[in-house]
Computed example of a mutant assay.
Amino acid sequence: MSMQGRIGHARGAKTKRALGVQAILEWAFRVEKAQLELPPPKDVSEEGFGFGLEYVLLQRAALGCKVDGGQHKMGSYTHADAEVVAATVAGMPDSLGGIRMAISVAEMARAGLTPDWMPGVVPRCVPVETKSNQHGERATTIVVGTERVLSRGKWRTVEVLACPVTWRPHPEQIASARRGYEDWWQALDWVRDGLIAGRMMREVEVTATMPKVRPWLARKHSAV
């Protein structure tokens, strides 16, 4: 083989970048500015909406055509692999949250964020209300009843006061935040499997790397 032939062969065997699914999502939506092509509502006529991006990608892949992007980036190019990622996310099944979860996954990736599962937060018992004066801050009390007491030889009626308390943050708030994280994790797991099974990306390879499934459990074990 000639030198020119060897160079051409080396160029053709381009090594793929290996990234975990969260890194791939952030690259696609944050760096490449890929946009979701969501299907129209089921009760709206499809006329005028055209084909979804996922359909276009599949058709072009079948024909062996290169996917061109850039329609959302004002003339700049959106990487073809990023368009594949966006199309995969747009196909989020209803069992995992459908369109709403697809938008959430894309927006979290675009912002480079992980859902807030309230790390280190412990519910604390605190007064429902406090008041401040020149003597400082004090818990507000309410009258919950009356009692008859003997004071200096006389019976007197006195008010029984109590300080209403609550838990902040409420345990349900923490549980809700962690359910939201788990739903997001399941969505990423589905996207990862879809990208691996689809085998449509040309320059990026999806690894098995995933965010921790329940990071609050890991923190609890490490504290023991």
Rank of each mutant, 00 (worst) to 15 (best):
S2L: 06
S2T: 14
R6I: 07
R6C: 03
I7C: 00
H9W: 08
A13Q: 10
E26G: 11
R30Q: 05
V31S: 13
V31N: 13
E32G: 07
K33G: 11
A34T: 08
P39D: 09
P40I: 10
E47V: 14
E54A: 12
Y55N: 09
L58I: 14
G64I: 15
C65P: 01
K66C: 09
D68Q: 11
M74D: 10
T78Q: 07
T78M: 08
A82Y: 13
V85A: 05
M92A: 00
D94W: 07
S95Y: 00
L96D: 03
G97I: 04
A102D: 04
M108T: 06
R110N: 06
A111Y: 02
T114P: 00
P123N: 04
P123Y: 02
R124P: 02
V128W: 08
E129C: 09
T130Q: 04
S132A: 09
R138M: 13
T141I: 03
T141H: 09
G153I: 06
L161H: 08
A162S: 06
C163E: 13
P164K: 04
R179V: 15
R179I: 15
D183M: 12
W184R: 15
L188E: 09
R192N: 03
I196E: 01
M200Y: 01
E203L: 10
V204R: 06
T207A: 09
T209C: 02
W216K: 02
L217A: 02
